[in-house]
Design a binder for these strands. Structure first.
Length: 268
DNA sequence: ATGGTCGACCCTCGA
């Protein structure tokens, strides 16, 4: 059976609900993980999702900042809303979802951006980001006979040289500094996670999911970064049939600065 | 070489 999971940093779910509804109608992922919803739970647009056929919703939101939500066409069961770095930010949500004969533990993450100055001694936001990634070491890719794990979200780090428009020019820019990319890859390997985007799309190929709002012509300059990720446990990676990065979504009217990524599987 | 744009919200913060 086909099964698909999408991830999208939406940068205000209320403002962009029409775009989300159009996306769901066009691509119909089984599950959609949103980040930066910027929406308290009591104001979450539940009925719009219900109308779109996504009746099952798990949310962890707060006023003004951050916030994650996982919505699905099939039942999901909330597992945990974990507060990383013990500061009250809503940046994680995990659920169980049944797919074929398998149960999937699905983590939805929004890692702190880290501010502008890539020095943890003088920039507390960068310190927070490094601490957050360090704490993610405790999130392993659990797997068993009928259990797989998936981790998606805006992880705000572009680990490979081909994940940014210019490796050299971004070496000292937050999201691609060696301290971030090294600890990021170490964390991924420690948890036994497989980078499904790079399994499907050769690491030699440039691949971006985010383009700054500040560019005067994002498509022409094409100064993108791969900040959004889809990982799985080793026992799910052979079932991956494809990854779609919806680059054209950056050109939609009043877009998010991130585009959706969809992972498709063929499960028994 | 620098500043450039968003969204939420109470005016500045976070990205």
């Amino acid at each position: 059976m086909p099964f698909s999971i999408a991830t999208w940093n939406i940068n205000s779910v209320r403002l962009r609900m029409p775009l989300v509804a159009q996306f769901l109608a066009d691509y119909q992922p089984d599950v959609l993980c949103l980040q930066e919803t910027k929406c308290p739970d009591d104001l979450f647009p539940l009925s719009a999702f219900r109308k779109a056929g996504y009746e099952h919703v798990a949310i962890s939101g707060q006023k003004g900042y951050h916030g994650v939500a996982t919505v699905a066409r099939r039942p999901i069961e909330i597992v945990e809303k974990r507060r990383f770095c013990d500061n009250g930010d809503c940046r994680h949500l995990s659920v169980h979802v049944e797919a074929g004969s398998r149960r999937i533990l699905l983590h939805n993450f929004y890692v702190p951006a880290g501010g502008d100055e890539p020095d943890p001694e003088i920039n507390p936001k960068f310190r927070h980001k490094l601490d957050f990634v360090a704490e993610m070491h405790d999130v392993p890719a659990l797997e068993a006979d009928n259990l797989s794990s998936v981790l998606v979200g805006d992880l705000n780090i572009a680990p490979l040289e081909t994940d940014v428009w210019s490796h050299k020019q971004l070496l000292n820019v937050v999201s691609h500094t060696p301290i971030e990319t090294t600890s990021f890859e170490a964390m991924r390997r420690a948890g036994n996670w497989v980078d499904l985007m790079r399994q499907a799309i050769p690491p030699e190929e440039k691949l971006y999911t985010w383009w700054s709002y500040r560019a005067q012509d994002w498509a022409a300059s094409d100064r993108g970064r791969r900040l959004d990720h889809v990982w799985s446990s080793p026992n799910l990676s052979p079932a991956l049939t494809g990854i779609k990065v919806l680059r054209h979504a950056r050109g939609w009217e009043r877009p998010s600065d991130h585009v959706p990524v969809i992972a498709s599987f063929d499960l028994d």
